[in-house]
Computed example of a mutant assay.
Amino acid sequence: MKANPYHYAKGISFVNDIIFHHYPPSPVAEKVRVALGIKQLNWCSVTIPRVPPKPLLMPLTGGFRRTPVMQIGADVYCDSQCILRELQKRYPQPSFSGDASPGMLWGLSRWTDDTLFKLCLKIVLAVAEPNMPQDLLKDRGRLYFGPHWDFSKVRAELPQLVAQLRTQLGWMDQQLSSGNKYMLGDNASLADALAYYLIWFIRGRWSEGPEFLSQFSEIVAWEQRVNEIGHGTPTDMSAEQALSIAKAVEPTTPESVDPNDPLKLEVGMQISIAPNEDSGEQPVSGKLRFADRETIALIQSNDQVGTVCINFPRVGYRIITA
């Protein structure tokens, strides 16, 4: 199945609009691109490298290296969970909730983005390992599976992993069997973006993916409907231009901390933020700007971008206080 082609628009007010740092083959970026399509948004597309170093991205993110990243002026959003929440906040209609209440959709993302995504990654990378560029293989192995990753062992248990995947995709197929156009009803929702990027990844990156998916007739039909939603309207932008936009403005994220925060955080406190798992990544450090139940943000400054506010989700990340 062909991916939707990008259509580029003119006249976007770059300072206030969405700047999306990604690369086309990224499955996590595809999740956000579908979400941008659900809301039919205009956005600026900055293509970044697949592996570090990322010298024109990391000045914005304080060293955070994962894909994708969203930038609006001098406010930067790391991790797709944080990006999607900010999109819903800034552009509430059409809602990511679709025909459902919003709360459990974010809980659903912890299954699709953790358990199920890592299962898909294991299958794809284990099969592709002999032909993968070594720098990409080493990077992804360490990032997602820790310091002792070994895809030869994963290949030995491949039938077991495929059986696990088959069961879980069967749940999705069953969910779609009610006759609804999308996962939760007749309107596309966050649930569709959360599921679609995994199907997109399996079909496009696992040699046996298309044949495997053919047993799920409801998913195959739904996949085409989601594909037709598209990615909104992107416009190419250079990484240098994105950096200059950040430098030209000040962050708009408010200075505020939830008074009930269990960590007793305070505005201006020196903190570091890092993923919960042992992924080999360096923490991002700076002065606390904002914290609530869902999001935490810190301030950093450097010569390339001036002062930026870098936002992270609370779930999946730990906060280290000085």
Rank of each mutant, 00 (worst) to 15 (best):
R90F: 09
A191Y: 00
A188C: 11
V249A: 05
L108I: 14
W111G: 01
E211D: 14
F212Y: 13
L119K: 06
D135Q: 08
G73L: 08
F312N: 11
L158F: 12
V284D: 12
V28A: 12
K31A: 10
W222L: 12
V15Y: 05
D192E: 05
S217R: 15
W200F: 10
P130S: 04
D186R: 04
I219N: 11
F212Q: 11
Q304D: 15
N131L: 12
V308E: 00
E218T: 12
L119R: 04
H22F: 04
D292E: 00
L119T: 01
L87C: 01
P254G: 05
Q168H: 06
P313A: 14
P59H: 07
K31T: 11
I229L: 15
K89F: 04
S26L: 05
A128R: 15
P5M: 01
K2I: 14
Q270V: 07
G232D: 12
G232K: 05
P147T: 01
Q270R: 11
Q88L: 02
Q304L: 14
M132D: 05
M70N: 08
M1N: 06
D278N: 11
I296R: 00
N180H: 13
S178H: 03
E294I: 08
I299A: 08
I245S: 03
P68F: 02
K39V: 09
A195H: 11
L263D: 08
I123H: 04
E250A: 12
T47V: 09
N276W: 01
G230M: 02
G230I: 03
V15K: 08
M1R: 06
Q164F: 00
Q168V: 07
D292C: 05
T321F: 09
L194F: 13
T61K: 08
D261F: 00
T61S: 15
Q134R: 10
P210G: 13
N302P: 15
